[in-house]
Simulated assay, not measured.
Amino acid sequence: MRKLLTVYLGNYCRSPFAQVALTRRGGKGVAVRSAGLIGKWQDQPANPSVINAARRLGLDLTSHRAQQITLEMLDWADEVLAMDAAVLDTLQAISGERSAHKLALYLRSRDVPDPMGQGDDAFNECAVLIEAGTALHIDRNVP
């Protein structure tokens, strides 16, 4: 089983959405977790706007609770997917040689735009982009 970890700043919006999107696409062949670099939203639900965006795409984020990344999570993952370059840089600094070979940008060559502080359209567009990005990590839908 492949193990993926999605990471963003607070584990409040993009990283939890990526977690559920990758889980749906990967089915039983993948285990996906998400985490944030900071604990600002520790144990809090996902942003209401991203919960609504997920619902529109047939995904459920209502059980999500934010968590801060740990070295154990980095060790657990086969791949660690950062939502943007700043997070990737921080992950590289945190992990050093330990996990450097596993780190990558979620969209490979560009950042996933941050919808925070914007309207529902920005969250919906972000969700569609993240869902499309699942194809970069999982080749096909698996029941």
Score class of each variant (00 low, 15 high):
Ala35Val: 01
Gly117Glu: 08
Glu125Ser: 12
Pro48Val: 10
Ser109Val: 13
Ser95Asn: 08
Asp78Val: 13
Gly117Val: 03
Leu5Glu: 11
Ala127Phe: 00
Arg14Trp: 06
Pro45Asp: 12
Ser49Gly: 06
Ile69Val: 04
Tyr8Lys: 09
Leu71Tyr: 10
Thr70Val: 11
Arg108Trp: 09
Val20Trp: 06
Glu79Ser: 06
Ile138Arg: 00
Lys28Ile: 12
Ser99Ala: 15
Ala86Asn: 09
Ala100Trp: 12
Arg65Met: 04
Asp78Cys: 08
Leu103Phe: 02
Val112His: 06
Gly133Ala: 00
Asp89Glu: 15
Thr90Glu: 14
Ala85Trp: 11
Ala31Arg: 12
Asp111Ala: 08
Ala93Trp: 06
Asp114Pro: 07
Gly29His: 14
Leu103Gly: 06
His137Phe: 04
Ser99Thr: 14
Glu72Arg: 15
Val50Arg: 00
Cys13Val: 10
Ala53Arg: 05
Arg65Ala: 08
Glu131Pro: 04
Ser15Leu: 06
Leu88Arg: 01
Thr6Gly: 09
Asp75Arg: 15
Ala31His: 11
Ile138Phe: 08
Arg98Asp: 09
Arg33Glu: 15
Leu5Asp: 12
Glu131Trp: 03
Ala31Gln: 15
Ser63Ile: 13
Val20Asp: 01
Cys13Ile: 04
Thr70Ile: 11
Gln42Trp: 14
Lys102Ala: 05
Leu81Ile: 03
Asn141Phe: 14
Pro143Ala: 14
Asn11Thr: 10
Ile51Leu: 01
Leu22Thr: 02
Ile51Glu: 03
Val30Gln: 07
Lys3Val: 08
Leu59Cys: 05
Pro45Ile: 07
Leu4Pro: 03
Pro113Ala: 07
Lys102His: 00
Thr134Glu: 00
Asp111Thr: 07
Val30Asn: 04
Arg140Ile: 13
Cys13Pro: 06
His64Trp: 01
